[in-house]
Design a protein around this nucleic acid. Structure first.
Length: 423
RNA sequence: GUGGGCGUAGCUCAGCUGGUAGAGCACCGGGUUGUGGUCCCGGCGGUCGCGGGUUCGAGUCCCGUCGCUCACCCCA
């Protein structure tokens, strides 16, 4: 093997691609039916877009971006997530003039330079939905509910939905100050990584694997206990909408989002058996986002789902195959008279035009090899054309499902096949 | 960025204490089989990740390197 894709990339060969396609198609159908419209935004943006919106302190921006200068000396980065580009497009094209909220979805790749492992690649695929332009808690709940409906529709079971409110940045700062005080008081017993997080990202301290630190953090102040009245009211509304829908969830007071721009509602859907990277989908509200970009105050909510992880989970559950129906074609044309090839290949086009899936040998296979191939591709009908058929301007049609064979004039073949398939 | 495990045919793997490369599946061909997704035979296919070293001789030992993988970290 001399050629290999770069680390952290993967090829989607046809079998897995069919699963991915089915997963995304299901999302498209569900979100489409709810009124979300598809859009697409660039794979790369000016680096500043991500720097301003993700927060300079976040790992994603500081060391995980694929950044470079283009030939015009512009600072460019491959998108590490999809939300920023969508919000940028919303502002750039004045979508605030349309009925609010503007609800859109997209599916595409994003890029993050980190060490690959199961469920974490450098190029990964996300399905992303955003609803921009409304504060209404009903929007948050709708996104969560659609997401759960989608994941359940593709057969996932054992999902865990966690929700939390992380309030507004201003309120969060007050809480973080309290949390820092608490950590300082217990500094002697905390692990180094927790102390490091105390400075960089205190909310993340709760995620530590260190047992002693976990015990201490169990008694630390929780953001849920000191939400501003506005945030508490919004959060209560979201929960009420979810309850009314029968969506079961758990309030997780230590749940945080990775990017800085999030406010109020935050949620994550996990499939624990996936391993260390068990978050299959995560989202939240980002009411301050547009202002950071220099736009007018614009609320928004959205989520991103990791398609790679979802496909992994489906494969683990052994239900990936069920999503992709059996692959079979209607007709295989077995040609054992070389002179007949051009005419019969032309006939393939006519069959296909008539809505019949049809194939013939493309690799110089022997008579027997062609038959075996017909079986392999699951052809229901095999049309044979040998020297004597060709001389008589007929073909032999064998119906593998019903049995039996019949000579059919070449001129009548398309009609004959269509009758068999429809009948 | 930090650790652990692993790297032999397209895939899954075997190769004992170093002696010069194998199986199954897949693919192609032939035979057989009640119109035939069986069975049998044959063929194709490998610089044993790469580079050094030890040795008469290394897939097998040592060092380095690259890659994969799991975990940390981070997050979808």
């Amino acid at each position: 093997m001399t050629l290999k894709g770069p680390p952290g990339t993967q090829d989607w060969l046809p079998e897995r691609m069919a699963i991915r396609r089915a997963v995304v198609d299901r999302a498209t159908a569900i979100f489409g039916a709810a009124g979300y419209a598809e859009l697409a935004v660039p794979l790369f943006e000016e680096t500043g877009l991500f720097e301003r919106t993700s927060g300079e302190s976040s790992e994603v921006v500081t060391k995980e971006m694929y950044s470079f200068r283009d030939r015009g000396d512009r600072a460019i980065s491959l998108r590490p997530e999809l939300t920023a580009g969508i919000v940028r497009a919303y502002l750039q094209h004045g979508l605030h003039k349309r009925p609010q909220p503007v609800r859109v979805f997209t599916c595409g790749t994003a890029y993050r330079y980190n060490r690959p492992q199961r469920g974490r690649l450098r190029e990964f695929v996300q399905f992303d939905a955003e609803a921009i332009g409304s504060h209404d808690a009903a929007v948050d709940a709708e996104l969560i509910a659609l997401q759960m409906a989608w994941l359940e529709a593709i057969g996932m079971t054992g999902l865990e939905l966690e929700v939390n409110s992380i309030d507004t940045p201003a309120a969060r700062r007050l809480y973080v100050a309290d949390l820092r005080d608490y950590l300082d008081r217990h500094a002697a017993e905390l692990s180094d990584d927790v102390l490091r997080l105390r400075d960089t990202n205190p909310l993340r301290a709760f995620d530590t694997k260190h047992e002693r630190s976990q015990a201490i953090l169990a008694d630390a102040p929780k953001i849920t206990d000191r939400l501003s009245t506005e945030a508490a009211a919004h959060f209560a509304e979201v929960r009420a909408f979810l309850d009314a829908r029968g969506v079961s969830f758990r309030v997780e007071p230590t749940l945080v989002r990775g990017l800085d721009y999030y406010t109020h509602t935050a949620w994550e859907i996990k499939w624990p058996a996936l391993g260390a990277q068990s978050t299959v989908s995560g989202g939240g509200r980002y009411d301050g986002f547009a202002e950071v970009l220099g736009g007018p105050p614009t609320p928004g909510v959205g989520f991103a789902a990791g398609i790679d992880r979802i496909v992994l989970a489906l494969e683990d559950q052994g239900i990936a195959g069920a999503l992709v129906g059996p692959v079979a074609i209607d007709v295989f044309v077995q040609i054992t008279e070389p002179a007949a090839r051009p005419a019969l290949h032309a006939l393939l086009d006519r069959l296909r035009l008539a809505g019949v899936s049809a194939e013939a040998d493309l690799a110089g296979r022997s008579d027997k090899g062609q038959w075996k191939h017909a079986e392999r591709v699951g052809a229901r009908i095999v049309v044979q054309c040998g020297p004597s058929d060709w001389a008589a301007a007929t073909v032999t049609v064998r119906d593998r499902e019903r049995g039996g064979s019949e000579a059919v004039a070449l001129t009548r073949l398309v009609d004959d096949i269509v009758e068999r398939i429809r009948g």
